[in-house]
């Protein structure tokens, strides 16, 4: 019983988790910052890919539509872990070959950039579907009205389609953001020092597996819950001036 208490001993855990060395709390926070950075970047890149992808799927030619169909199907059927490995090696290979062909020699790719690239491509497939659904949900009349006024296509997108689809897209995008934060953990397997890898290193060095895994879990949970609050606000803002969804459905 005493040994059990020792493992669960809170005083010892606090010491291990303190922010300054010899505590490992600072490492965990640094890992969290890295994770969030990659998640932000990947989410952003995913949105850009998703926006082009959604427009391509809706208005593109047959070839573009088929290619995008293959992209979203493959990405959504193959495990992220496998995709991360393939994209990581393909990405570094391609960039190196390109830069060698252009005569620059080898370039180094920082962990964060590589992480954003691989997770961004994965996120892009999911955002494509979310945004496509949201664009389709925008009443046709609004877009047609804008066109009738002679607005150029890009302006229609910026001023009409995107603002109007926001309220439909936010719940799906909130979900994608959560997936992005959790998927950064997979980068631990490729050796990026994000939260999960930092946790594992700390746990291995101190043998306090429970303490560190629970602490990291708590950090991820805080991010999730805070994101929920933020996205709730965004959804409210995106829906300002619109009748509530419930009323809309009953019509």
């Amino acid at each position: 019983m005493e040994t059990l208490l020792d493992t669960l001993g809170l005083a010892q855990s606090m010491e291990l988790l303190s922010l300054s060395p010899p505590g490992w709390g600072g490492n965990l926070l640094r890992g969290l910052v890295n994770s969030l950075q990659i998640a932000f970047g990947a989410f952003g890149l995913g949105l850009v890919i998703g926006l082009f992808g959604a427009y391509g799927k809706l208005y593109g030619g047959v070839v573009i539509r088929d290619l995008l169909g293959i992209y979203t199907t493959v990405i959504r059927a193959v495990p992220e872990l496998v995709l991360i490995l393939i994209l990581y090696y393909v990405g570094t290979d391609l960039i190196n070959q390109a830069s060698e062909a252009m005569g620059y020699g080898r370039v180094e790719i920082s962990g964060v950039v590589a992480g954003i690239w691989v997770l961004g491509v994965v996120q892009g497939a999911y955002s494509t579907e979310v945004l496509r659904g949201a664009i389709q949900a925008v009443p046709k009349g609004q877009i047609e009205a804008a066109r009738a006024y002679g607005m150029p296509a890009f302006l229609v997108m910026r001023r009409v389609t995107i603002p109007a689809m926001m309220s439909f897209a936010v719940p799906g995008l909130a979900n994608l953001w959560l997936i992005a934060t959790k998927d950064t953990a997979l980068l631990a397997i490729v050796g990026f020092s994000e939260l999960t890898l930092e946790t594992k290193q700390a746990a291995a060095s101190t043998r306090a597996y429970f303490t560190f895994f629970l602490a990291a879990g708590a950090l991820y949970l805080v991010v999730t819950l805070l994101s929920g609050v933020v996205f709730g606000r965004i959804e409210k803002w995106a829906r300002r001036g619109q009748p509530s969804l419930r009323a809309g459905q009953s019509r």
């Binding site: 060395p21 010899p22 505590g23 490992w24 600072g26 490492n27 960039i95 390109a98 830069s99 620059y104 020699g105 370039v107 180094e108 790719i109 920082s110 950039v113 690239w117 050796g191 020092s193 890898l197 594992k200 290193q201 700390a202 291995a204 060095s205």
Partner: peptide, 30 residues
């Protein structure tokens, strides 16, 4: 993206070690 990636100078030699600690040969402190 490419330029951002290759910001470090070309003279640097990147020595790869295993990210997983392998004491007493290589380990990471807090």
């Amino acid at each position: 993206a490419v330029l951002g990636a290759g910001a470090a100078s070309a003279e640097e030699v990147k020595v790869g070690i295993a990210a997983e600690p392998y004491p007493p040969f290589a380990s990471v402190d807090s």
